[in-house]
Design a protein around this nucleic acid. Structure first.
Ligand code: MN
Ligand code: MN
Ligand code: ZN
Ligand code: ZN
Lengths: 154, 154
DNA sequence: TATTTATTGAAAATGATTTTCATTATTAAA
DNA sequence: TTTAATAATGAAAATCATTTTCAATAAATA
């Protein structure tokens, strides 16, 4: 089941090197867990799984690692309205590809969709260019969310 | 300064009628405040202002009203990463028009942008149609966010 | 090896949001 | 209008996700 992705280290390890951040056991475990799931996991979700693998890992470190990864653009942090932040790997080689969300305002169901990415790519690319130029912003990622009511709730 | 928008009542009052929700003093005050601001206000922000106008209004009611308005699609709830939810009127007749956000991952600065709405309209409209059909979702709103690093932080 | 720096986890603190519950205002029924 | 049912409200308490502190440990560097 669990196996390493790349030759001598996962793709994200280079990013750590560049930042002068150490590749530690807790951080590896968190990244592994994120790679293994297709869900929108909360910090506690990650902590519980991490704890199974290595009971010494603390919740604080999970939070810190998740924050770090968010700032590095490796994970995306979401608030779907259920009171806790949820995290998702931006590029999961084995799992979910680039996608966006349909969010039910009543039951808070989250639906991932991956369709129509060609249209999106065009629109986002163009907009991103214009924005980063105009506002002198270094744009690293984006999110598109549609809100409404799901089949059950409408 | 403060004056009523429409003849016999604000546009949102009809929405309340339809839902069988009562138009009460606290709710009017919250809506007024939302109309008057161009900021991304937190529940506490609203509470403080509400309290100035009418000191009997409680924080709990502000939360409840904001939640209600979010479900009705009258306000949009955001998490910009600073630990508290922020709210914005979706359609502010006097204030902000439809817009989206540029979010700095480091200093959490939020930049509203209103440009390129024509391109957006085309893309969003098309996508929304396809999605609501395919997933049988009643889409009422959307949000587009770009993440990255602002002038100061990059 | 000695020294500096980064990382960690437990415990405590924080603070936003929710829940409870008794009271009050509004609507519907009689 | 009186009465009964329902919705809305606010204070206080409870919850609970997230952050802060701080002393201990591990890793990098001189
Ligand atoms: Mn997703
Ligand atoms: Mn805005
Ligand atoms: Zn739903
Ligand atoms: Zn910034």
């Amino acid at each position: 089941m669990r196996e390493k992705r790349c030759g001598r280290g996962a793709w994200w390890q280079d990013r750590f090197q560049d930042m002068g951040a150490r590749i530690t056991a807790p951080r590896e475990v968190v990244l592994d867990i994120l790679h293994e799931t297709d869900d929108h996991v909360s910090a506690t979700d990650v902590y519980v799984k991490a704890h199974e693998i290595n009971p010494t890992i603390g919740l604080t470190t999970v939070y810190r690692t998740l924050d770090m990864l968010t700032q590095m653009g490796i994970v995306q942090k979401f608030d779907f309205g259920d009171g806790k932040s949820r995290y998702e790997l931006v590029n999961n080689p084995d799992g979910k590809k680039h996608h966006h969300h349909l969010i039910c305002l009543r039951c808070k169901t989250i639906l991932d969709y991956t369709e129509f990415l060609d249209d999106e790519l065009e629109f986002i690319g163009k907009t991103q260019n214009r924005l980063s130029k105009k506002y002198n912003f270094n744009i690293t990622d984006h999110a598109i969310s549609f809100y409404g009511f799901c089949e059950q709730c409408k």
